[in-house]
Design a binder for these strands. Structure first.
Lengths: 191, 191
DNA sequence: ACCTGAACACCGTTCAAGT
DNA sequence: ACCTGAACACCGTTCAAGT
């Protein structure tokens, strides 16, 4: 006789994300997730292969949200100058990271191989930046340019989240300075 | 009656680093470290406050090594063009990261607050880059320029180590492309 | 002064037994 | 078909007892 479902994969992933953000990665235990969704820990394994798998699902969900956010920004003003659009994208990534720092970090530094998001979802979240990079640097250099912009963005935000900017100075201004330099450097019109 | 020392802090940190590199962060257990140095796990707490503290010590040691490496590169050809020197520094960081990827990742994404390296040692490892950045961008923009270069470098390498470059293309070439663009963008002589 | 075994409170995960 | 308690093999850490 079937038992009525007492939870769902969605609820588990959502609970995991909340827990990750409020308690950090070490607080994301199967027990804690089970408590949140009102089930015993072993029951989670009906919907999730392992804790690593749960972490991967959280990464995947976060990545999808980021991709949606960036798509919205990119398509908001399709006519705007590509330098401005790249700048807006970079600011959107930073705002997203600040709204959920733990989940953001998870995307870019998975604690294990099995918890890394799939190449497909990574590619999807890079689409908006790739398209602006193509406009800026031209089709031949689009991939390299997108990588340069993405590397700088994730590097800056990663250092910021890790508390790496303790030499003083205005971090917001450093971000603005950086994105302006990067955008100009990638702009083929500038030569 | 005192017992002769059966291990030392240095040996523990070294064993921890080896273990980290060969087994990953999750393989870096107090038990495994104790086995390596020939002691029982509780004895480690005579020299180390906690596992987090051991991780911090490993980060600190790695950071000191990186700083020494970069100092050596920076002072090898003091007369060279700053663009070339920044390029060499960037390549040195990447080579260092590849020689010990797990320890490298630890420096830039500490798994917890207590395992982060001290601001002082971070500042020390940034000295070489800061000095080239000052030459390139001028004293007023030195800090912002150093942050831009560092963010790009750590971001690129972090993505590479996380396996984030699966869209194809030549990653070595993307690195060369990026550092050339960044160096040119920071160079005030180019304007 | 250092080292140890025993113990504590946790983990992630498996599995037979329940409904 | 889902859920559970019990169990297993691990953790990090503390502490009294040994030398």
């Amino acid at each position: 006789m079937p038992t009525p479902d007492r939870t769902s994969l969605d609820e588990i992933v959502r609970a995991g994300r909340d827990l990750l953000e409020s308690e950090g990665l070490s607080g994301l235990s199967m027990q804690a997730v089970a408590d949140r969704v009102g089930v015993r820990a072993p029951s989670l394994y009906k919907r999730v292969r392992s804790r690593d798998d749960l972490i991967r699902l959280i990464s995947e969900a976060t990545l999808a949200e980021l991709a949606a956010r960036l798509d919205a920004v990119a398509s908001a003003e399709p006519q705007a100058d590509p330098v401005d659009r790249l700048t807006q994208l970079a600011h959107a990534v930073r705002a997203f990271a600040r709204s959920g720092p733990e989940a953001y970090r998870l995307m870019f530094s998975p604690p294990s191989e099995g918890s890394a998001a799939s190449p497909e979802s990574i590619a999807r979240s890079a689409a908006a930046i790739l398209s602006v990079a193509a406009e800026l640097a031209g089709p031949d250099d689009a991939l390299d340019a997108a990588r340069t912009a993405t590397a700088w963005t994730t590097g800056f935000i990663g250092m910021e989240l890790a508390g790496g900017f303790r030499l003083g100075g205005d971090v917001d201004q450093a971000y603005a300075y950086g994105i302006a330099r990067i955008a100009a450097a990638l702009d083929r019109r500038a030569g």
